[in-house]
Design a binder for these strands. Structure first.
Lengths: 214, 214
DNA sequence: TATAATACGGAACAATGTTCCGTTTGTCAA
DNA sequence: TTGACAAACGGAACATTGTTCCGTATTATA
């Protein structure tokens, strides 16, 4: 399940051939920058000045630009990083809960991911070529993540088997438009309802719905 | 029909009370700026530098800022100006063609309006308070425009009477997403189809469909 | 035509993305 | 452990763009 296409580090070093290991301090800077950027984007939006991010990360602007040559590279990296975290959560949840519950919890985790990405989503459609590979990355990470959970839940007889992972991801993303104001309660309620819908037609009968309806 | 809420000039002078008439040179500058902005936005997008617009208008930056104190004011003005033009087209078309044809042509005119406003539409949802009044303006101008054409066509028995102007405007706006690349042919074909649909259930029978299907 | 209000142009300022380069640090072979 | 060098660091400096300010020019009016 956990088939992340590349190794750690997230910076923009040469991906192919004989690239040396990233230096420890560089990795520290990259981590600090990603964390700071995530926080700053959340508070001040994606248009926040890079200086603010560098400062919050306790790093010079030169360092920021060494790892993320353009502003858009940083944004894309944060996006990828968040996708990774969300995708990785699938394996963790799958190990900790039974298939149905893992699926339900991951769907809510996905809501958390989508709901905080309004600004970024807008940036995606800006035509900037830096963001072009992100949809592919989405397919490579999030889609298999849900697919695995879904298959497991179906195999366990906890949910019906005639729904598609892609469809679900799109549906939830659209439901998250109910959370424009940042309040995800309505979106979460609807997603829970959706999941209960999945459970409804399961082979194993006896459905005890969760409390999605208020 | 032509009930434009305010007089000409488009600048941001005091709307209420004892405002003097705009000076001739000022009006010239405003017109030149709106025209230049429209052109520049079309070529370089809404993020084009204001200097470029001022230059194209043959006007100093100071002049631009005198009439449009903020960049967003200029964008909003262009948007309003385009809405006006589109709304005004309704009356012209109504005078020139019979009700059904006028309706059909205006719908295509509306496609032209929407299709060139992708960047602006994104700006609308940016949360900038400058754009807040625009949806209201939309309702005041475009909705009545279509409503009038629709009523006339219904009264003439050329189209069915059970459709709503709002619904149509939304539908067409969504159909225009078929024209992301700037090519509106598909969108126009679909809209033509939509209009033929309107004609289909008309009280006056004998429907000769236009060539929407290729 | 004289006068005052208005508008004009563009230099100057401010904010922000990006580049450049001298200095520092981490890694590794001797 | 130490020396050398590639890599990374910080931040000043540059470039671009939104915005302000003010001296000059134009327009409307008496």
């Amino acid at each position: 399940m956990n088939d992340k296409p590349e190794e750690q580090s997230d910076g923009l070093e040469a991906r192919g051939g004989t690239d040396r290991r990233v230096r420890a301090d560089a990795q520290r800077s990259i981590d600090a920058l990603l964390q700071a950027a995530l926080a700053v984007f959340a508070t001040s939006g994606v248009d926040a000045p890079v200086r603010e991010i560098a400062e919050k990360a306790g790093v010079g602007i030169g360092t920021l630009y060494r790892h993320f040559p353009q502003r858009a590279d940083l944004i894309a990296a944060v996006f990828r990083h968040e996708m990774d975290a969300c995708a990785d959560a699938a394996a963790i949840l799958a190990a900790e809960y039974d298939p149905g519950e893992a699926l339900a919890r991951w769907m809510q985790r996905y809501v958390s991911f989508v709901a905080t990405k309004h600004g970024l989503a807008a940036a995606l459609h800006s035509g900037d070529p830096t963001f072009a590979p992100l949809p592919t990355y989405f397919d490579q990470r999030l889609r298999p993540a849900l697919h695995g959970l879904l298959d497991a839940a179906v195999a366990a007889g906890e949910v019906r088997d005639n729904v598609d992972a892609d469809e679900l991801l799109s549906a939830v993303a659209n439901l998250c438009r109910l959370a424009d104001d940042g309040d995800t309660t309505r979106a979460r309620r609807m997603v829970a309802l959706l999941v209960d819908g999945l459970r409804y037609g399961a082979s194993r009968s006896a459905n005890t719905p969760s409390d999605a309806t208020r």
